[in-house]
Design a protein around this nucleic acid. Structure first.
Length: 488
RNA sequence: GGCCCCGUCGUCUAGUGGCCUAGGACUCUGGCUUCUCAAGCCAGCUACGCGGGUUCGAAUCCCGUCGGGGCUACCA
């Protein structure tokens, strides 16, 4: 691989089929593709595999573009940015595939197959029954002119099918080593439907060649389709030394050791965005699924990832997705944010929660409380509940907390706190602390957690809040006093 | 069923024949700190799937076995 980088530019592509929102597995692949391209100083190509227009929608394509951008995985060639080997939507390259399919037909590498879906299915069924490997049996491989005329006369429309020669395909996978597939287990496969529309096997191989892709880092599920892809390279006349290097990435699995799905954790990246995860946290965590820097470090920036990422360090075994660890990393990333950056990222969550409308003064209030909540949250979605008490005159005390301050001791605490706080000339966390401590701890002899707990609930509405004295300072004397009175 | 891939703490991983009485991180448990919740600090629990080889020596190499996963489409 080192030699390649000397003689030609590294070109890596991420080519999803947007049949739904991009999910964790897709993004891990995209991240590795991107990181490898950046690491080698090569190009990162983004291609949309939308040959199956019945399942791919424009909405999903737009979402995929949006998700990649949000994560910071900028592409050098692809949708919206163009490039010298475009277009980068396969649905716009149909004529190219048709031309190659015809070439394969002309050269005898492919042939027309008149078998209907039903006939194929029936034969596969009997193959299974006879304990044979199901797959195309080669019925139409060598049709005579008479047979063709007969089928045409019946009105059958032929698909274009690739001829797999006898023998085997060998290739070196950068992650798994040397691999051999015997062709007797790789049946002739369909390149294009009767209407001429291409299938994945045709489009992917043609585009990788035409777009001069040098490295294919993709999911392990495509491993067994690699011989078919290589067969297309051969038919296109590509020299073996010019084949792309394959690296099949291990799966990202759900909790129960099956493929990720709604059931065992949310898969759509859009969901993580809404849940308050930072893109750099998602990338950092995903980078650790199937790859590691080699030393003990786990907190890596995008910059470090591009510097350290090599396929040699990619694991070959599948990884389980762990939400807990993602949250831990997300918390670390939040704590690493500057207050201005934190504010920028948190604002949408506070606004969407209906806590503020977005005025400058409201933003200033949010910004003032951010420093004391930064280390207490793991996700941006937790910001609203933490800052809520700073808005509005009164506060609603939640059920469980309400009971905690309805007893006589609490009432007494609140009454005495009120008396100690009202005369205060200087209102800051230091003076509040001193005043409350004097009357509640020293005079009453209460345990701090009992004493301050009651005040906390009265002032913030909850027994869980940012530090009390700082919260009261930010709230302001007037509202703090009012809330204590209301709670008595 | 066939073909293929994979197998170190609960999870992610380090480990490429001796540095391993297996290291780190997340989780969990206990403690410290403490105005709640967090954060932080300390401690603890827990792993080389199994069986054979090769070797002076194996988590590391080989074989078998078991287990998990993928593919087996006119999806990608």
């Amino acid at each position: 691989m080192a030699n390649d980088s000397l003689k030609k530019e590294i070109r890596v592509r991420f080519a999803p089929s947007p049949t739904g929102d991009l999910h964790v597995g897709n993004i891990r692949t995209a991240l590795f593709d991107w990181a490898y391209a950046r690491h080698t100083g090569g190009k990162f190509i983004f291609r949309i595999e939308d040959t199956d227009r019945e399942r791919v929608t424009d909405q999903y394509i737009a979402a995929a573009i949006d998700t990649l951008r949000w994560l910071g995985l900028e592409w050098d060639e692809g949708p919206e940015v163009g490039g010298p080997y475009g277009p980068y939507l396969q649905s716009q390259r149909l004529d190219i595939y048709a031309k190659w399919a015809q070439t394969f037909l002309d050269n005898g590498d492919a042939y027309r197959c008149y078998c209907s879906t039903e006939e194929l299915e029936a034969r596969r069924e009997s193959q299974r029954a006879a304990n044979l490997a199901p797959g195309y049996d080669g019925k139409c491989r060598n049709l005579s002119a008479a047979e063709i005329a007969k089928y045409e006369g019946e009105g059958r429309k032929p698909v274009t099918r690739m001829r797999m020669p006898d023998g085997e395909t060998q290739f070196n996978d950068a992650i798994r080593g040397d691999l051999v597939f015997e062709h007797k287990f790789v049946p002739d496969f369909v390149l294009a439907r009767a209407d001429g529309s291409p299938l994945y096997t045709l489009a992917v191989a043609v585009d990788d060649v035409l777009m001069k892709v040098t490295h294919i880092l993709r999911g392990e599920d495509l491993l067994s389709s690699t011989p078919r892809q290589i067969r297309v390279y051969q038919a296109m006349g590509v020299a073996p030394e010019d084949y792309p290097i394959f690296a099949h990435l291990p799966f990202v699995m759900g909790q129960d050791n099956t493929k990720l799905s709604k059931r065992n954790g949310e898969v759509s990246i859009a969901w993580y965005r809404d849940a308050g995860f930072l893109p750099e946290a998602i990338c950092n965590y995903l980078a650790l699924l199937g790859w590691s820097p080699g030393d003990d470090r786990e907190n890596v920036t995008m910059q470090e990832l591009t510097e350290l990422f090599t396929v040699e360090r990619v694991n070959s075994s599948p990884a389980r997705f762990d939400m807990k660890k993602l949250e831990a990393i997300n918390g670390d990333k939040i704590r690493a944010l500057t207050i201005d950056d934190f504010l920028l990222r948190a604002l949408p969550f506070v606004t969407n929660a209906g806590i503020i409308s977005g005025t400058d003064s409201e933003k200033a209030v949010i910004k003032s409380v951010l420093p004391i909540i930064q280390e207490r949250i793991a996700k941006l979605s937790e910001v609203p509940q933490m800052v809520k008490f700073l808005f509005g005159e009164s506060v609603e005390i939640e059920g469980e907390s309400k009971e905690k301050i309805s007893d006589e001791v609490s009432k007494d605490v609140l009454r005495r706190s009120l008396a100690a706080l009202e005369p205060l000339k200087i209102w800051n966390h230091g003076s509040i602390d001193a005043a409350l401590r004097a009357v509640l701890i020293e005079e009453m002899g209460l345990k701090p957690r009992i004493a301050f707990g009651a005040v906390r609930i009265a002032v913030t509405g909850s027994h869980i809040s940012p530090p009390l004295f700082e919260s009261m300072e930010l709230l302001g004397k007037e509202r703090a006093i009012t809330r204590i009175k209301n709670a008595i």
